[in-house]
Amino acid sequence: MFEIECPYCGRRDGSEFSYAGEAHISRPSGDEEISDEAWAGFVFMCRNIKGVQAERWVHSAGCRRFFNMLRNTATDQILAVYKMGEEPPEVEKQPLPSPSGESLGSGNDAVQVMGKGET
């Protein structure tokens, strides 16, 4: 399990936290007219990004605060942590070595071998 920098408590073991889904999704009010499709889009559909995703976590064993985080879901690298209500910070683009984010010819769990001339 990775470590997470709680914006309130500091760096803690990931087991103190719970994942709470994609961030920056606003709930359509039930008062507005909204199509079945749009509502299902809110309730069920996900972007399910492979790459940098804005997502919510809660420090469930610590301060119980929900917060946002930018994480590369393909590598589990956490790029930024920010509080609820804040806009995601700019982060460096993470170019993926191949469209799938992994070296060709292997699952992304496989050993990566450097090519000639690569440093």
């Binding site: 590598t75 050993v111 990566q112 071998v113 450097m114 690569e118 440093t119």
Partner: peptide
């Protein structure tokens, strides 16, 4: 090293893989 997700480099001199990146 490989479990840590480091990239290996093949080294002809030692005829083996060594830590790359």
């Amino acid at each position: 090293f490989s479990q840590s997700r480091g990239k290996l480099r093949y080294d002809e001199d030692i005829a083996g893989f060594r830590p790359g990146k």
